[in-house]
Design a protein around this nucleic acid. Structure first.
Lengths: 228, 228
DNA sequence: CGTTGGGTTGAGCGCGATCAAGCGTGGTGG
DNA sequence: CCACCACGCTTGATCGCGCTCAACCCAACG
């Protein structure tokens, strides 16, 4: 298990180059950063790092999904974010060298681009371009996190699920159909719900024209769902 | 009311220079940034900006407290963050030029340092030092936001209040006493609670040796509270 | 004094967690 | 090939936390 460390192959390199972090970065900038990158693979449920560990690395997801979660004193877990292809996580370690703020776990078989925080910290002070890319990523992660707090505090379970579905529908479609990119239990965690609550939320959305077959979601009337 | 725009006076300048954003920045860096700053004052309940507005400015709190909140469709409000002296907020606008992600309101009479996002965006590409400072601030805000999600999802109201109290006690004190820096209703919002729930949480903490007189909190046995 | 605004207290209720049982599908081995 | 199991998910029943609404308290202030 765990953690086969490899060099970047062509395909991974392409994924990385088109990820939000590097999109729009010059060739030179990109080359500089990927001197300090390795690809690491994990199998489902493998731990990537633990809360409190010293943040030696940060990551960009190449394939698969990563679950960020924390524990309370009794050991109950709560997800605080889910990262998918192109997402960068744990990049706060570059500036807050104390410790990772959460546990990270592979939700399935995944491959990650792994950066050395120490090395990138130096690059940041040398290259405005790299600094700008990282700031944009931080910015985006911050916006998402605040969005998540708002969503938790403002919306009920069915509303959160409806929001999630709508984000995955083309803006102006009348009806739509798509496949969940990951397990329902992971979605439940991402939305701050127990799996049972997600299940019930889905069935309460039937009345709004949403039908679910395995991982496939079908929406009869997108605008009706939006009004829900 | 509202929005007297002034130049930076000596005292404000000092506060700003020692805020996390500028702490550790060189004289030159600091001077460059504060060319683009203005001081703006607001009275309690004044709106600073609205969700969806174009993010022309971002802010660092000089004195007082700012409430960041969002609305759901029915107009119910939920707080997503509270910013106090030295905190910087809405700085994501520098990189996400679409719109503010929340409403910001003065929780009391406040003074803010107001930066032009556009101008600072340019500075960031010129000065690694300024970039680094902003990244550290973004990082810190991101960590806090994720912490907030975790706290909401893992802890009950009394536990959240206990956590808050403990953060305001000296690490190794045996007993402690301090004064809330703002109204209880604001604290309730910050913790994702209705004011009534905060009140009840306080009284349930009596059994753990916490007593409350107005804004003054007294903790008999800090380590007992930590175990709670 | 009366008013206003922040805070507390009480009663009722609804959402979502928890526990437990059941369902369906895919995978493995006899 | 089929029996069996494992796992993800659903469904049902119960319970408790925290929201809501309403009344009340109290201190500050005009």
């Amino acid at each position: 298990m765990v953690n086969k460390i490899l060099k970047l192959n062509g395909r991974d390199r392409d994924i990385l180059a088109t990820s939000p972090l590097f999109k729009g970065m010059s060739q030179q900038g990109f080359s500089k950063v990927i001197e300090h990158v390795a690809v690491s693979s994990f199998e489902a449920k493998d731990l990537i790092f633990r809360e409190g560990d010293s943040p030696e690395y940060f990551y960009t997801v190449l394939t698969g999904f990563v679950r960020a979660y924390r524990l309370n004193r009794e050991g109950r877990e709560a997800d605080i974010a889910v990262y998918g292809p192109g997402d960068t996580f744990a990049e706060t370690g570059i500036f807050n060298s104390d410790a990772y703020g959460f546990n990270a776990q592979a939700a399935e078989g995944i491959t990650l681009a792994r950066f050395e925080t120490e090395s990138v910290r130096k690059l940041v002070t040398e290259s405005p371009e790299i600094a700008f890319a990282l700031m944009t990523t931080l910015s985006c992660n911050l916006k998402n996190a605040l969005e998540c707090v708002a969503d938790d505090r403002l919306h009920t379970a069915p509303q959160r699920v409806a929001n999630f579905i709508l984000k995955h529908c083309p803006e102006s479609a009348q009806s739509a159909r798509f496949r969940l990119p990951f397990q329902k239990s992971l979605l439940a965690g991402k939305l701050g719900l127990a799996p049972e609550a997600l299940s019930r939320a889905f069935s309460s959305l039937k009345s709004a024209g949403v039908s679910v077959h395995g991982r496939v979601i079908e929406i009869n009337d997108v605008s009706a769902l939006r009004r829900f």
